[in-house]
Design a protein around this nucleic acid. Structure first.
Length: 732
DNA sequence: TTTGCTTATCTTTTT
DNA sequence: GATAAGCAAA
């Protein structure tokens, strides 16, 4: 690239940006292709972010107005990080670049254009919990709720409706494809779905999907908006494109009206959000959506050391779907990833804690250490361990601040201020008051419905019942807040002082802890001008629960939330069957393949050191402590690519006494399977046992036909009948 | 009608 | 180990 053509840019070091020096040829090509559709297929750790950052810098360098650049990423934080890095290259101008998530951007646009489709600008966004509550209410009203024990639960309902919305299919096809056992309820679900959609429209409510659907519809129906946005935004970039769905692809296409300057970046082997309607095929469909797409592949891995990459390659090599690229490592050196077989989850937690302590004394920054796991609750034991050891951590994923009951209570007051006839919020608040149950709450609400001024009615509620005084107090506060324009800050303080007695009554044991979270909420809300923007932001971009701003915290995260991040040292824990892959995913081959990609995502987060860890005994709900096998993906990694870790000497002292003596941790190390090989023809097999075949892989015994023949349902290749005298089946 | 008590049931992942 | 649903008493 001829550097002298470029005006020198003022980066922080005072040196002009040297694109050719800082980027490899493929990255450079992506950065320099400014016009037309571009698809960048980028492997894990291939400098995806770097490429996007430099492209933003290049666009600005070429004189593009920063306000005309849109950077859509998976989280708002990711966008902020990228723009911060870009501003180090080209200065402050980057702050004008539009950046954020799809949902946040759609929300932003809808606050302006919602009236086009019959919504007010101050519509309320429902999070998943709100949707579930509303569905339960509507199902009850339709008389569907108690109709049968097999009627889908509210969570399942929300998932089904959302899937239909995101994948552009009608309800019946979704049921046929994914939930055949619910087909008998097709008519009822259809009715519920219609009622739900109508209710949302008539009550100014939108769920996450509506943010996308409604913005898409406005773009489709209003040519002037389409033209306006096409002029307003000249360059669109989308990160993590493998995790977008059809709806989002449509929106991108519509917004690129008139210029088609779209660059999407993604990795089909890291697609882990199919439950949200994403499919890795979407990224491969991009060239068909945009004629003349330039395809660039980034296949060099800059993040990980070779031994780590050998492991991750082994994981993805067994995927059924063969992926579009092959990763080559750039870094050399580094030790083998460690494998620790813990006795149970307590021991696992101790191991991680001790390793972390070692690392910290070695001078590794806490922020360079992460512990990853499949589900939020897998880290409970570790959290306790770290707390007692005094090691600060932040947890990503799992329970959120806005899920806490006391936070919801506070926010419901704000919602009532925006819309006094918000049925669910009113219910929630009325039920706080003593002697008001479901029936009374409903009666009060129906009175509100038929009144001219609902808040005024509350403030002077005509009733001699014990609870009436509390209702009046509530009404008076709401009325005062609605009529005064003293700002959100003041309102939050007022609401909190109203709520405090309820908080103490509701949670006599731990109200101080909860009150701290209320303070956290107040600090958070002080950054917002009004309740509408606070509520929509909380719904779209929920803050971490213990965002304590501790700089020196290690990170505990679900594998999903670790997407796009990297650390020097990464522990992946609870890699035992029954924990990972998620038990719910082991029924379908597609789902298992997604779990594999998830494992791949997790393992590729490590720069230097990687530790796999699993407990040999896990606590299964109800059944108590059960022996567990290592996760199937872990077993697929050749034993010579891993280094077994020994437990710490000090850890030994604390061993639980109930562990069987004959249990030998070496037995579970992959590659060391002699111990459990069954002699051919042995009758040691039982129906339901998990077995492994040298070619077909893992499976479950479906039937034992006679002494020599056995039927096995293999996880990947389906049911096979095997002759025991010819095969080497091992129990796993 | 509300409330308090018991029991069963599960636990993916997230914008 | 939290949380919802079910049942009996106030």
């Amino acid at each position: 690239m001829p550097g002298d053509e470029h005006l020198p840019m003022a980066n922080l070091s005072g040196q002009p940006v040297d694109f050719a020096r800082d980027l490899n040829p493929e990255q450079l090509e992506a950065v320099e292709t400014l016009d037309g559709p571009v698809l960048v297929i980028a492997g894990a750790g291939s400098g995806k972010t770097r490429t996007l950052v430099y492209r933003v810098a290049m666009l600005i360098h070429k004189g593009v107005d920063p306000g005309q650049i849109l950077l859509l990423t998976f989280t708002r934080k990711a966008a902020a990080t990228m723009l911060e890095r870009a501003s180090r290259l080209v200065g402050e101008k980057c702050q004008e670049v539009q950046g954020g998530t799809f949902h946040a951007f759609c929300n932003h646009m809808l606050r302006r254009y919602a009236p086009r489709i019959g919504y007010p600008n101050n519509f309320t966004i429902m999070d998943r919990g709100d949707v579930q509550d509303l569905l339960r209410l509507l199902a009850r009203q339709l008389g569907l709720a108690g109709s049968s024990r097999t009627f889908p639960k509210k969570g399942a309902l929300a998932t089904i409706f959302s899937k239909a919305a995101n994948s552009h299919m009608d309800l019946v096809s979704i049921l046929e494809n994914h939930y055949p056992h619910l087909l008998e309820y097709a008519a009822a679900l259809e009715r519920l779905s219609n009622v739900y959609n109508q209710y949302k429209k008539s009550h100014a409510l939108m769920d996450y999907d509506d943010l996308l659907i409604n913005w898409r519809d406005i773009l489709l129906e209003c040519e002037d908006v389409r033209r306006w946005i096409g002029k307003r935004i000249r360059y669109i970039m989308v990160d993590e494109y493998q995790d977008t769905n059809k709806l989002q692809a449509e929106i991108v296409k519509l917004m690129a009206f008139g210029h088609n300057n779209v660059m999407v970046v993604g990795d089909d082997s890291q697609s882990i959000y199919s439950f949200r309607g994403a499919h890795f095929k979407n990224i491969l469909d991009f060239p068909r959506l945009f004629q003349g797409t330039k395809i660039i592949k980034l296949e060099k891995n800059y993040r990980s050391t070779q031994p780590n990459l050998d492991c991750t390659n082994a994981i993805i090599a067994n995927a059924r779907q063969k992926f579009t690229k092959r990763l080559v490592a750039c870094r050399s050196g580094g030790g083998l990833p460690g494998l620790y077989v813990a006795r149970d989850e307590m021991d696992q937690a101790r191991f991680v804690r001790q390793k972390v302590e070692d690392l910290l004394t070695q001078g590794i920054e806490p922020t360079e250490v992460a512990v990853l796991f499949r589900a939020g609750f897998h880290s409970y034991a570790l959290e306790t361990e770290l707390n007692t050891a005094g090691i600060p951590f932040i947890k990503r994923g799992g329970k959120r601040l806005v899920d806490a009951a006391h936070i919801k209570d506070m926010l419901c007051i704000l919602r009532i201020l925006i819309n006094p006839l918000d049925r669910l919020s009113c219910d929630r608040i009325f039920l706080l008051i003593e002697k008001i149950g479901p029936k009374t709450a409903e009666r009060i609400f129906s009175n509100l419905l038929s009144s001219q001024d609902p808040l005024d009615l509350l403030a002077h509620y005509p009733s001699k019942a014990k609870w009436a005084a509390h209702i009046k107090e509530l009404g008076a506060m709401l009325k005062a807040l609605a009529e005064s324009a003293t700002g959100l800050d003041h309102a939050m303080k007022r609401i909190e002082s109203w709520y405090t007695p309820y908080l103490k009554g509701l949670y006599p044991d731990d109200w101080p802890r909860r009150q701290q979270e209320l303070t956290q909420l107040r600090i958070l809300s002080s950054r917002y001008p009004d309740a509408v923007s606070l509520l929509s932001d909380l719904a779209i971009d929920p803050p971490e629960r213990n965002e304590t701003y501790q700089r020196d915290s290690i990170c505990l995260s679900t594998m999903h939330s670790a997407k796009g991040l990297e650390w020097k040292v990464v522990f992946i824990i609870s890699l035992a069957e029954g924990r990972f892959p998620a038990p719910a995913s082991t029924q379908q081959v597609d789902a298992i393949e997604e779990e594999r990609r998830l494992f791949y995502v997790a393992a590729t987060r490590a720069k230097d050191q990687l530790f796999f860890c699993y407990p040999a005994f896990i606590n299964q709900s109800g059944a108590g402590l059960l022996p567990a096998r290592p996760c199937r993906f872990l077993e697929e990694i050749p034993g010579n690519l891993l280094k077994p870790c020994k437990p710490h000497e000090t850890a030994r002292e604390g061993h639980p006494a109930h562990m069987p003596d004959r249990y030998d941790t070496r037995a579970c190390i992959p590659g060391n399977t002699e111990h459990n090989e069954m002699p051919a023809g042995s009758s040691g097999f039982k129906v339901g046992m998990r077995v492994r075949h040298p070619i077909f892989g893992p499976g479950r015994i479906a039937n034992i036909m006679d002494a020599k023949r056995i039927k096995v349902m293999f996880d990947v290749s389906g049911e096979k009948t095997l002759r025991l005298d010819f095969t080497e089946l091992s129990i796993i």
